[in-house]
Every structure is written in structure tokens, then in C-alpha cells.
Amino acid sequence: MSSTGAGYDVSPTTFSPDGRLFQVEYAGKAVENSGTAIGLKCKDGVILAVENLMLSKLLVSNSNRRTYNVGSHISIAVAGLVSDGRQVVNRAREEAENYKDNYGSDMPPTILADRLAQFVHYFTLNYSLRPFGASVLIAGHDAFTDSIELNVIEPSGVAYKFFGAALGKGRQGAKTEIEKLKLTETTCDDAVKEMAKILHKLHDESKDKPFELEMAWVTAANGYKAQRVPRDIV
């Protein structure tokens, strides 16, 4: 066994000698290999865009989505193992429903992100569990502060709040592109086009599988209701 940590990667319950949790890092690798997913917080809303790689030409278009509605005002995009991500989404829906049951108002996205982060983190603590091979982008509207938010949860159980975020294969390129945008001045209608451009630019026709562009947004124009961006716009 070398001191770099061979043998320390079979369980998230054991640290390597230099303080790393390999299982969690490997889960992160699963996210890095997925189709790109980007999220932008604009002037009047938040948009999620996903490069949904089509594994086969026989797949029915739009049948395996990677964006999900969670309650009326939150949308979640998954990067990584979609089935793992769906587990997180299901939990998110539960949390949002419970919150509404208890308090009678829509769950603020930051609180949802914190709760989900706890949930995801729990899976990095047990010998009998494996971390989620998925990260999620959470776009939502907070009715209490009338603000919009973009949160990201990583397999480690950390939650970040972003202006713009990118996950998956093309994340590096996407981040550089996003940094060029003036997010606080851009409207969702314009940003949708930018995001489509970014995803198409980063997609390598020769190497990558064909993809479907999938977008969801939470915008002022729609009363901050979570919905997929209509097909005619995408």
C-alpha cells in the first residue's frame, strides 16, 4: 500500500492518510463525465440548460429528462447518474411538500438546498451507503424575499449559491463563456439563447453522441412558476 491512499478508497467512512475521501471524489468523477448542465441567474429569473446526450437513435425524444419540477416554483437539473439524481429530486419533492403542509407557503430554495445537502451528505458518512454519483442545480424563487436563486449540491453534500454554474463534461468551457456574460443585466429571453449557444459550442459533433437541448426556467414573466422552456424557444 502506498501512502497516497491505495486501499482507502473502498468506503466513504475511512479517510486516506492525506485526509481525502476517495469514494466521494469518485462520485464527483461520475458527475464530471456527464453531459453538460449549466445554470444562470439572470435579471428576471433563473435558467437551467442541460445537454441531454441521446444514448441511442431509437430513444423517444424528450423521454428521459434531466430537469424536474419540484413544487410550483423550483426546478432541478441533474448532472451525473440520472437515477441517483432522481433520488435527490424525489427527496426534494418530499421536502417541498412537507414544508408547504407545515407552513402553508412555498419552500424557499435556499432552505431546500440546505436540506438536500444534509440528505446527500448523509450518504457520505456510512459504511453501508455510497455517495450519490450526481450533482444537482436548483433554480428557484424565494417568495419571502422575492429573490431568485441558483444553488448547486455536490456529491460531498456541500451546497453552493451561484450566479452562474456549470457541471459535467463541458463545465470548464461553459464557465469561461458564462463569465463573459453580464448576468445582472441579461434577461432570461436573451440568456436562453446564450445558453443554447454555449452548449452547442461545447458539444463536439465528431466525438460526442447527439444531444437534445433541455431547458427549464423560473422567471418573473411566468410568475416564477417552474416550467420547461417551451419547445419553440429551445
Binding site: 424536474y68 419540477n69 413544487g71 411538500e97
Partner: peptide, 15 residues
């Protein structure tokens, strides 16, 4: 109303 709204939210989640 709450029961039915919950059901409707499930419809909307399914999207």
C-alpha cells in the same frame, strides 16, 4: 382543497 392541490402538484411535477 389541500388534498386536491397536492394531487395537482404531482401532475405538475410529472410535467
Amino acid at each position: 382543497q389541500e388534498i386536491l392541490e397536492k394531487m395537482d402538484q404531482e401532475d405538475k411535477n410529472a410535467d
